[in-house]
């Protein structure tokens, strides 16, 4: 992907999401509009139940909004069929989950390559996957199964998996939620580096303010509505957390 920084990569216009629970309709999202530009490092923050995960799922094309539109490079996502959605997720997005979601029967290398398994893995893909595992400092763990890794290591495998198809956008749902603060800080600074050096756009959902401070911009959500947007000066925060890291 060779989009220029500053261009819109993903845009949600006035999206709502309703769930029916029995006879009650729950408004998980109520008219939210956000735009994500290339090269940004965004955090969506809010307490649990605020609708932040729902927003992430909509942005990741895992679910369709009840109303409103989601535009990817100006194209309406609701017009996509199953094949187009899958291709969009494979080539355009990288997902990082709170619970890592690695396939327990596959080793690290295979987990990184998992998106390519149905279509077939080429030699270059494998080379690329090994490079990614080295990048996340797991070059020595290539043949290990997830159950032999620590939580932080697992999350790094899942980052390598998310980066496998060089997506312009990484979506992470509480990526540090299941990690201790040291491993969590390491993951966040790694994502930060990725954003700075590789220009990968990153959107993280979290309720942890410490982790949110790595971002350029924090979007606060309450009760399915956009509360405010904080713009942070990143350098200070970066330094502050480097202490924790060492």
């Amino acid at each position: 992907m060779n989009e220029k920084p500053g261009e819109k990569i993903l845009e949600a216009v006035n999206v709502t999401k309703h769930y029916r629970m029995g006879n009650v309709t729950v408004k998980a999202l109520d008219g939210v509009s956000i735009e994500i530009k290339h090269g940004e490092f965004l955090v969506i923050m809010g307490p649990s139940g605020s609708g932040k995960s729902t927003l992430l799922h909509l942005l990741g094309a895992l679910d369709l909004p009840s109303s409103g539109t989601l535009l990817i490079n100006g194209k309406d996502i609701s017009q996509f069929d199953d094949f187009q959605l899958s291709m969009f997720r494979r080539n355009y997005l990288g997902f990082i989950f709170q619970t890592f979601n690695l396939v327990p029967t596959l080793n690290c290398l295979e987990n990184v390559l998992v998106s390519l398994l149905p279509s077939g893995v080429k030699f270059e893909d494998e080379k690329h996957a090994v490079e990614l595992l080295k990048l996340v400092e797991l070059g020595h763990r290539i043949n290990h199964r997830p159950n032999m890794l620590s939580g932080g290591e697992r999350q790094r495998v899942s980052i390598a998996r998310a980066l496998m198809n060089d997506p312009p956008l990484l979506l992470a749902d509480e990526p540090t939620g299941n990690l201790d603060s040291v491993s969590g800080g390491k993951i966040m600074s790694f994502l930060k580096d990725l954003n700075r050096k590789e220009g990968v756009t990153i959107l993280i959902v979290t309720h942890d303010r410490d982790m949110a401070l790595y971002a350029d911009k924090i979007i606060n959500i309450r009760d399915g509505k956009l509360l405010d947007v904080e713009v942070l000066k990143d350098r200070k925060i970066h330094k502050k957390h480097k202490k924790v890291m060492v």
């Binding site: 899958s86 997720r89 997902f95 979601n101 396939v103 398994l117």
Partner: peptide
């Protein structure tokens, strides 16, 4: 997860 990473 597999669907999320692009499996049909």
């Amino acid at each position: 997860t597999l669907r999320a990473v692009g499996w049909l």
